[in-house]
Design a protein around this nucleic acid. Structure first.
Lengths: 238, 238
DNA sequence: TTCAGTTCAGAACGTTCA
DNA sequence: TGAACGTTCTGAACTGAA
């Protein structure tokens, strides 16, 4: 085995005058290139690490052949020449095949990572929704920048009418509970009540009340579904 | 020393004056054309690379002869004129015959490649089959949690009827071959047969057989397309 | 910081076709 | 003959967990 040019950094004695807090240079025990740390149990450079991992993962090392006498010297410049001897040396300096993850292990790690990412995504979305809701409140404070006093009064009057309608035409008591599993008839009941509320509300609006009865019916009939959706979105509580 | 099979930027001399931080243009040492990388141990262009490989693979270089004095100057435009001197120069700049793959090596690589591909294909199929089998078994084992004995018997009776229908009304012999490129009439034939099978199958079900003929027809006509799709999904074999 | 894995551009092999 | 392409291998730069 060849020694690293400046001696193995691993065995620096405490009294070694060359020991400085600055840096301890380490070298790949396979090819002599600069090494940063241990890989698979042996001190090696990044390229020898990659070479070893790939060889094991693909099981390609089983097909390596030495064109000479299985004694090739491995250096930075010659390491590509003989895969067989390079791999042999990797094993010789302590790198172990067992430390390379199997396909299953890799998939396992991958799955865990994916799950984590998804969780974080969901958190992000939640945070955004929260911010949006807060901004909504802020917008209401700035409403005077965009609407006149008259506009606001009109809106408030309409909102008032709607509230009155909802109070006037109440839901049947069976629908007031928070029960989630409602039967079919109850759902239909609920829709009927909402539709009645909407009709009542429309009558409160002067511009609606003045048009002919027949036109009123057409308008209500064609818009009631959208209004139900709108109301659903409004009362939806995530 | 032998040259690496793949990838080698290692042989750029550190003292090379042409080395600039901007770009390092490389030129073929044989003919002066632009070179991208080393080939067989020498920096050469693609055409000289191909020329060298062919000459070695066919052993044709042994028959090259120089019509002049074996001192021909090789340039981009003259490189075709004298194979002998071109090959001589290839060797002179470092290209080695030994690095061209022999027929055996090529076959060896080919075989490994084929084996790998096949192995992976098999793995894929295995994995898919395994997953399918697991899902299938799990469901079938838990079937008693969701169905009563009567339910299961009923299902089995229906399955039986279906099988009988399929056997009773057989496909025409021309459709039994595994040929993929079927004509239009054959496809139509196939659909007709399937529809007849479905009608026959429906007649086997008592609850269907007892309803009026006219209603039967309506039911069959409105459901036949979906049933065909369902059957297609069932018999589909990837 | 250490040490797993991942990604990507590039090197250098062979093959095909005009 | 040589351009263009398809393949595999290499190694630098990166992510991510402990």
């Amino acid at each position: 085995m060849s020694l690293p040019p400046y001696g193995s950094a691993t065995f620096i004695e405490p009294t070694d005058p060359s020991f400085t807090p600055a840096k301890k240079l380490k070298f790949c025990k396979v090819c002599g290139d600069r090494a940063k740390s241990y890989h698979f149990g042996g001190l090696s450079c990044d390229s020898c690490k990659a070479f070893f991992r790939r060889s094991v993962q693909s099981a390609g090392y089983k097909n390596f052949q030495c064109p000479y006498r299985r004694t090739c010297e491995i250096t930075i410049s010659s390491r590509k020449c003989c895969q067989f001897c390079r791999f042999q040396k990797c094993v010789a300096i302590g790198m172990e095949k067992g430390w390379v993850m199997t396909e299953e292990e890799r998939l396992h790690v991958l799955r865990i990572r994916m799950a984590k990412r998804q969780e974080e995504e969901e958190k992000k979305i939640h945070r955004r929704q929260k911010i949006r809701r807060e901004n909504h409140h802020a917008d209401l404070n700035e409403i005077h920048k965009f609407l006149t006093e008259d506009d606001i009064q009109c809106i408030e009057s309409i909102m008032n009418s709607y509230e009155v309608s909802c109070l006037t035409i109440a839901f049947s008591s069976s629908l007031c509970s928070q029960h989630c599993d409602r039967g079919r008839t109850e759902i239909i009941d609920m829709f009927f009540t909402v539709i009645k509320q909407l009709a009542h509300f429309a009558q409160q609006l002067r511009s609606f009340a003045v048009i002919p009865r027949h036109d009123q019916e057409i308008l209500l009939r064609s818009g009631v579904m959208e209004l139900c959706f709108l109301r659903s979105a409004y009362v939806f509580d995530e």
